[in-house]
Design a protein around this nucleic acid. Structure first.
Lengths: 188, 188
DNA sequence: CCGCGCTGCGGCAATCGGTCGCGGTGTGCG
DNA sequence: CGCACACCGCGACCGATTGCCGCAGCGCGG
């Protein structure tokens, strides 16, 4: 199995690839992860991440979903293809059930919504692949805003990210859809 | 409607186990699925579902997450254990990213938030389990207005018609809820 | 009888949403 | 190669919707 041991080893730190287009965020998180014992390399786009991963496949990866250019999802696929044991965590400020499902299906070990702190990410990285089926179920239903967001994300995924097609399917105006997509999902 | 072909040949209908504790919902959905060509058996709890599944493992399953007693998640685990080829869709009115991740990790092929219609469920059931996660769906998704309406009605029913309580559960203003309730006989 | 929570509703200001339109980009075809 | 076509992002305008306040009526338990 994958090395679940903490990246403690004195001279052998675990390699981790961090991919996010937000410079400030990436820098801060990279430092935080280094302090926690990882050998961190960074990338600001899917393309450059693939380059680095091909040169040296990392043991762990933290990748942002929404980036200019290709979606972080395709990177997950690529990383797992390069090494099925890579433990990938998807990180996003635009969390939705639809993308979470895709990320997990593609082989990510976990999916976190920003904002989240470095400790959460580390915990996710080392989390048992099997979770606890007896987890608590949220007591209140989704808010209408949240439900709308989830629905839109789902349809958008079905339309492969095509905004115009999604707007047509939803019978709403493209401009309106754009505006809704631009706003962050309401944290619950 | 344009639903491709019925799941299987003429006299051999696919077996499907439907598990939900809401009697009315279960009855309606069972009928809808039968009309779409499945041989449907139902259960109102995880325990009774396990009994039925052990007697005869179904090819497909639609299970609710939140049920009195055990969580639907443990049922997914059990069904997959009985037959790894079982195609399970998780269905819930209390959707969350956390439970969605669990469901997928346990082997569910998809995870849908209520309200959703029977066509969506069928599409989810038949969606490619491996590879391309976004498969084309034929039916048109519900409009956001429609979805909102269904959701509000569901929560309102859960709160026994109490508008104030519903507004709180939905985290929306009572006045706004009132206006929405007063206006819509929304249809498409 | 009083306090409390729920309900329906008017009104006003602030935000949102529908619509039009523009410029830019990527792609397939004659 | 140039054109048609579809997509994307975004500014602007203005009517529709929402957030919020307040008021009055009503049933219920102390």
């Amino acid at each position: 199995m994958a090395q679940t041991e903490t990246p403690t080893a004195d001279d052998e730190r675990s390699t981790l690839l961090l991919v996010d287009d937000d410079d400030a965020f990436r820098r801060v998180l990279a430092r935080a992860l280094e302090r926690r014992g990882y050998s961190v390399s960074v990338a600001a786009s899917v393309e450059s991440a693939i380059g680095k991963a091909e040169a040296q496949p990392p043991e762990f990866a933290v990748v942002d979903l929404k980036m200019p250019g290709q979606s972080g999802l395709v990177l997950i696929e690529k990383l797992i293809e390069l090494d099925p044991n890579t433990r990938v965590v998807m990180l996003t400020g635009y969390a939705s059930i639809a993308t979470a499902i895709e990320a997990i299906k593609l082989g990510a070990v976990h999916y976190l919504a920003k904002p989240c702190d470095a400790d959460e990410i580390v915990a996710a990285l080392h989390r048992d692949s099997e979770g606890d089926p007896t987890m608590p179920v949220s007591g209140s239903p989704l808010s209408v805003d949240r439900l709308e967001w989830e629905h839109i994300q789902r349809v958008l995924a079905e339309n492969h990210g095509n905004v115009s097609a999604t707007a047509r399917a939803l019978r709403m105006h493209r401009r309106t859809l754009q505006r809704k997509l631009g706003k962050r999902p309401t944290r619950e």
